[in-house]
Computed example of a mutant assay.
Amino acid sequence: MSKRRGSALLLALLLTVAGMLAPAAAGASSASATRASSASAGTRIVTVAKRYVGKARYRKGGASPRRGFDCSGYTRYVYQTAKVRTLPHNAEGQRHSKHMRRISARSARPGDLVFYMSGGRAFHVAIYAGHHMQYAAATTTDGIRYQHVWSKRVQYRTDWH
């Protein structure tokens, strides 16, 4: 076989192998993009949630930084401002919101929601911060706080990862 023909065959073989690998590489970059977008959603949620710690007050029925927040008004406002999802202004409604699914505490990521449960219903909701901490519209005295998850009777839920 001539050198020229051998080089042409080698080039053809390399191009064929590269063509077979391209779809796998595209799938890998797509999976990486999905992980990156979910990571950035969590980062956006936590970034917005942090802004109001010690700066916004608690107000029953509240859903804005100017007027104050209740728990579900706070989570609704943060998710909407972070451009993740529009949630209802009710803890139990958020728990059953479209695409919201229950996850284990071990799978919870910063930005997920923490639902406090009693009698099978959510009575309070907060934003998970990681390491057993949360951002929450706590009380009229405390307003928005960064605090420990204060009960074992909670459900973690997410709709973005």
Rank of each mutant, 00 (worst) to 15 (best):
S2R: 10
R4D: 13
R5N: 10
G6Q: 12
S7M: 15
S7N: 13
S7A: 14
L10S: 09
A12V: 13
L13N: 07
L14Q: 08
V17K: 03
V17N: 04
V17C: 04
V17G: 01
A22K: 14
P23L: 02
P23T: 02
A25V: 14
A25G: 11
A26E: 08
A26M: 12
A26V: 09
G27A: 13
A28V: 11
A28M: 10
S29A: 07
A31S: 12
A31P: 02
S32T: 08
A33F: 05
R35S: 13
R35Y: 10
S40N: 13
I45V: 15
T47K: 12
V48C: 00
R51A: 10
Y52F: 15
K55M: 08
K55C: 07
A56Q: 03
Y58E: 02
Y58W: 14
R59A: 11
G61T: 09
S64D: 01
P65H: 02
P65V: 04
R66K: 15
C71N: 09
C71L: 10
C71W: 11
S72V: 12
S72T: 08
S72C: 06
S72N: 01
Y74P: 00
Y77K: 01
V78L: 06
Y79F: 15
R85D: 09
T86D: 08
L87A: 04
H89E: 02
A91K: 03
A91I: 08
G93F: 08
Q94D: 02
S97K: 09
K98Y: 11
K98A: 11
H99E: 07
H99A: 09
M100Y: 14
I103K: 07
R106D: 14
R106L: 11
R109C: 06
R109G: 01
P110N: 05
P110D: 01
G111N: 04
D112W: 10
L113G: 05
L113H: 03
L113C: 06
V114P: 00
V114E: 00
F115D: 00
A122E: 01
A122C: 05
F123H: 15
H124N: 07
H124S: 03
A126R: 09
A129N: 01
G130N: 01
H132D: 15
H132Q: 14
Q134E: 15
A136Y: 01
A136L: 06
T139V: 12
D142F: 00
D142V: 01
G143T: 12
G143K: 03
I144G: 03
I144D: 02
R145C: 07
Y146R: 12
Y146C: 03
H148D: 03
W150G: 15
K152A: 11
V154E: 05
Y156A: 05
Y156S: 08
R157M: 11
T158S: 12
